[in-house]
Nucleic acid binder design. Structure first.
Length: 114
DNA sequence: CGATTGACGTACG
DNA sequence: TCGTACGCCAATC
């Protein structure tokens, strides 16, 4: 049996996270929903816990919660890293929150679902 | 080895 | 409309 079918939820999260295009952002819930486990949004964030340890690294800064809040900024090297990275990609951040969130939102369901 | 926690989100009163 | 409860599953205490 191919192990490709045995990849855990984490691996799938990593796969999707790496597909997030430059200058775009998505939410934990969006990824979870795309994977078919809408209520496992927490696990998406949990997966990001070791994102920087992976190779290639996962653009965890492009993943925010459903309201565009930089809920995971505290887990970066410095609390400002996440915001800096986003602004570097042309995404405006105001008070730990993404401005025009829906405008920069990248929905894996809409983009990847065929 | 059982209980708690955690980068979230939805359901329900 | 707002506040509280629960689910999700792995890692840590």
């Amino acid at each position: 049996m191919p192990k490709t079918l045995d990849i855990s939820f984490f691996e799938q999260v990593y796969q999707v996270a790496r597909l997030i295009p430059y200058g775009k952002i998505t939410s934990y819930g969006a990824i979870a929903t795309y994977l078919g486990t809408a209520k496992s949004a927490r696990m998406v964030g949990w997966a990001m816990n070791g994102a920087h340890k992976l190779d290639p690294p996962i653009p965890a800064h492009r993943v925010v919660n459903r309201i565009g809040l930089l809920s995971g900024k505290a887990h970066f090297e410095t609390p400002d890293t996440m915001q800096q990275l986003l602004e570097n990609e042309g995404i405006e951040v105001k008070d730990n929150q993404v401005v025009e969130f829906t405008k920069h939102f990248w929905n894996p369901i809409q983009e990847l679902k065929l």
